[in-house]
Nucleic acid binder design. Structure first.
Lengths: 342, 342
DNA sequence: CTGAAAGCGCTTACAG
DNA sequence: CTGAAAGCGCTTACAG
């Protein structure tokens, strides 16, 4: 069970074939006779053989190692991302190197380049906001390394993309609030300039328009995905005479900020004010009341990103890669309620 | 700036020395003349040379790669751990392989062993709860790999340890509540059987005893570090006639659960009830009111763990490693207040 | 203090 | 379908 290192030549000796043939079986190449293959596979099992990652990378064009870099303040997002990516990489027999980088550091390009060179990476996963930094994309392209971007803001055709449909998800959540009887609905946007922010806002407007409900300008607040931005915006809005009966925040942290603002304004949630979030991150279940929110399949997205990156690494020339669009789900919890009087 | 791979022999050629001597400089060995060293260092700079990680691992006893495995549901804990560990590893010129494992999986030992073999790890970092699993420790010991445990429950002398003083931290927080005028103070414990749980509870009792304050048995509630356990325990306690004016939870998630229980019981925090947490995790600042809590230097702990692991990897035989004890800090926020009437 | 040789465990051409 | 040879970029003994 617990054994120490056995090598390819051990396998070859036991299976009575050459090292080369043993290697063929390990790497699942096609041109091996069934009988030979079986013999080698037996040997692999008996010796509990695992190919060492280092010599593979030392010799070949492929290292069987991919990289995931991140610079995202949202802890729960990162952890889910990691778990999805690591599980998929393991399934596909690849190793994953994880590196936090600093997008505002002057050495970021050098850092990424060093990672590429030192570890001879086969490719890279780029979650937001790194996926939107042109200089990083350029570095990868000029190094000839494939990459997959997760939820990029810019939909150009550089590398592959894994996304959700932010527009439709936001529209669905807005429809849910409308169905609960709300007519005055506020919205808190994400960080300015990102596609996510734009698309979620557009989905909100689309649902309101379909329902022929007006959206006063002062009901659309500018946030930046952080708790504090929503707390400030919410305080301002809720102290006015005219205020919405429901607010939809572009992520869960900001929804938590709105709950705090409601408390400060002496309003009860969801009695006086319904609040909805986006992400279904850990925050959603540690605030009171717990958040009604849009579940984003972050783990799936990361796993999908790894899968299509590896497909591309393994691919022959005629391979035609495709982007992936994953679906979302509304999770109903205590922060929303039917509007009283309906 | 952005360059592709240069090798040790490129360096040797440029510096007009042998590959071996170039290697000596790269590896910071001592027996090189200053003049030779300078020439090689110049060449390294000019060619932007970075040693490839793969051949190092392929050939030598040392791979310059260490592993961090984790199985912890607390996202913010993991992310801080990763950042601290990755930064320190990079500083020391090591690479870090991160792997989520499943403690309840029957294949966990095999998984860890495979990781050890495939990546030829120099050593491993074990955060809780993995650091308390005897079979994992045994695997590492029999493989001859050094390891560092973070906050282990059991203080045996296997490997190195990095810890905080849970007892004194809990005692300090309890003293803070006492100083605020609270005399009836409740406590919610962590998961049964862990040393952390025991030590924090003991610290609480110690402070209460010093202040000659009674602790009724029904004021000490059993939790398990999760939100829900504290919500249930809190609901039960707060609906009784006799209830504490302050409760100290063994972590932030449970403190968040207590806030929810207080809301349900119609009590305001901190007006009717002060609540304190432990960890200063992300939860602490997204609940309302924000939590007064004990800041645990998770990032520092991870960095320290990596540092002493690498010291041990590099060490000669006469190296005498030592465990590390890091200090904590009380962070005061809105969830605690002076008891009214004082 | 410095170097020429052998080898780590694999993979990549090249033959048969 | 199978194998003997050369080599990846580095490090580890061994000499001088």
């Amino acid at each position: 069970m617990v054994q120490s290192k056995s090598t390819l030549s051990d396998i070859a000796k036991l299976a009575k074939v050459s090292i080369k043939t043993a290697s063929r079986v390990v790497r699942k190449e096609s041109k091996v006779s069934p009988k030979t293959r079986a013999a080698v596979e037996d040997a692999i099992k008996i010796l509990n053989y695992r190919p060492s990652v280092a010599p593979r990378a030392a010799v070949g064009s492929k290292s069987y190692v991919i990289g995931l870099v991140f610079d995202n303040p949202n802890a729960s997002y990162i952890v889910e991302l990691l778990q999805g990516a690591l599980e998929q990489a393991r399934k596909d027999g690849y190793h994953l190197i994880v590196e936090p980088v600093n997008l505002s550091s002057p050495s970021i390009i050098e850092d990424i380049n060093n990672l590429l060179i030192q570890s001879n990476l086969d490719g890279m996963i780029l979650p937001p906001p790194l996926c939107d930094e042109p200089s990083i994309l350029k570095t990868l392209i000029s190094a000839g390394k494939p990459f997959v971007r997760i939820s990029p803001s810019i939909s150009d055709e550089l590398g592959l993309r894994v996304e959700i449909n932010d527009h439709d998800a936001a529209k669905n959540m807005t429809n849910k609030l409308i169905t609960l009887g709300h007519k005055s609905i506020g919205f808190v946007t994400g960080r300015k300039g990102t596609a996510t922010t734009r698309r979620r806002l557009a989905g909100f407007y689309a649902a309101m328009k379909d329902a022929r409900l007006a959206v006063p300008n002062e009901f659309v607040l500018e946030g930046n995905f952080e708790y504090k931005s929503a707390l400030i915006a919410g305080e301002q809005l809720l102290n006015q005479e005219k205020r919405p009966t429901a607010i939809f925040a572009s992520n869960d942290e900001m929804a938590a900020g709105l709950i705090a603002a409601a408390h400060k304004a002496g309003l009860s949630v969801p009695g006086d004010l319904s609040i909805a979030g986006f992400d279904d991150s850990m925050v959603a279940t540690v605030v009171w009341p717990q958040l009604t929110t849009v579940r984003q399949p972050i783990k799936d997205m990361a796993a999908t990103a790894v899968r299509i990156l590896i497909e591309q690494c393994r691919a022959e020339k005629d391979y035609n890669p495709s982007n992936e669009l994953l679906s979302t789900e509304i999770i109903t919890r205590g922060s929303t309620a039917a509007k009283e009087g309906n």
